[in-house]
């Protein structure tokens, strides 16, 4: 009787293990969205920073540890975007999979990184990222690279579903390719148009869609606007007849709006992440929204 009971327990345990979903935590909603295209219902997905949060500044709350301590995989943007909050969470998670690196994916792998500082790097340049600009997910082609990394990593950790992840990757990449043609068609008339951005968030997006970033509201990354720099931006907008100032939802709009008032430019609040504004629920919709608003206002 005792033996049969143990056998039943063992069978049930192996059954539940074989169907246990991989627990995946992404640091941002963008990465979570891409991961959901790949893992669909075969992963248990969670994320830390919501799309309307500035991903540079997230509090390392103990409640996030609850997500990390059981995770099989942590997907991070990398390039030190999360340096102010993620290391302490990983350290305190007590999760050997994340700490050893086996369950950690730096999604920037394979990305052609913009704005890598050359020469000596100092904080005289503001909140400079020593490995380059980390906002690479704003180029949908980079989204394909991230998706490929995620599919590969999920396949490594969950070989039984490797084929499933690979198929979903192919479908996602096809969808991006199709959408990209449409987005580029819509943006084509705007090629070469100049925009001002609040932070150096839009470089990858501008490169892909042929926009020109004529300046930033911040004099240096992470440094609040100064009167002299603001005046410089006003003069540039007037001289180049720039129509649009782009700011992410989490920035204070006082300075952009004051510049807009003096120059006639329009302030566009564009999400840089999935979930940044109402209605942007996945990675495809993020570009739909951005392209549509730019098309209507440039």
């Amino acid at each position: 009787m005792k033996k049969s009971f143990l056998i039943i327990i063992a069978v049930l345990a192996s059954f539940s293990l074989s169907f246990a979903k991989l627990k995946v935590v992404a640091t941002t909603q963008d990465l979570a969205s891409i991961a959901s295209f790949i893992g669909k219902d075969r992963i248990d997905l969670n994320y830390i920073a919501k799309g309307y949060q500035d991903p540079h500044f997230v509090d390392s709350k103990p409640s996030y540890l609850l997500k990390l301590r059981q995770a099989d995989l942590l997907i991070a943007v990398g390039l030190e975007l999360e340096v102010g909050w993620l290391p302490v969470l990983v350290k305190d998670s007590r999760n050997s999979k994340l700490i050893s690196g086996k369950g950690y994916l730096d999604a920037s792998q394979g990305i052609e990184v913009r704005e890598k500082p050359v020469g000596q790097i100092t904080r005289a340049e503001g909140d400079v990222h020593p490995y380059g600009n980390p906002h690479y997910w704003l180029d949908p082609v980079n989204g394909k690279i991230v998706a490929a990394s995620i599919a590969r990593k999920l396949g490594e950790l969950d070989p039984a579903n490797s084929e499933f992840y690979q198929k979903n990757l192919e479908a996602f990449q096809r969808q991006i390719d199709e959408q990209l043609q449409e987005w580029q068609k819509l943006m084509e008339p705007l090629r070469g148009a100049k925009v001002i951005t609040y932070h150096r968030t839009r470089g990858y997006f501008a490169d892909r869609f042929g926009l020109e970033i004529a300046g930033e509201i911040e004099p240096k990354p992470g440094i609040p606007p100064t009167p002299s720099h603001t005046l410089e931006i006003i003069n540039r907008i007037k001289a180049d007849k720039i129509k649009v100032i782009v700011a992410e939802p989490f920035y204070d709009l006082k300075t952009p709006e004051s510049i807009a008032l003096k120059t006639g430019a329009k302030v566009l609040v564009l999400p840089s992440s999935v979930g940044g504004v109402e209605g942007v629920k996945d990675y495809i919709q993020l570009f739909d929204y951005n392209v549509k608003l730019l098309k209507e206002n440039l």
Binding site: K50, Y52, Q53, D54, F57, V58, D59, F250
Partner: peptide, 11 residues
């Protein structure tokens, strides 16, 4: 007790 609106976290 901490309060910080994540939509305006830096301000």
């Amino acid at each position: 007790f901490r309060w910080k609106n994540p939509r305006r976290a830096v301000y």
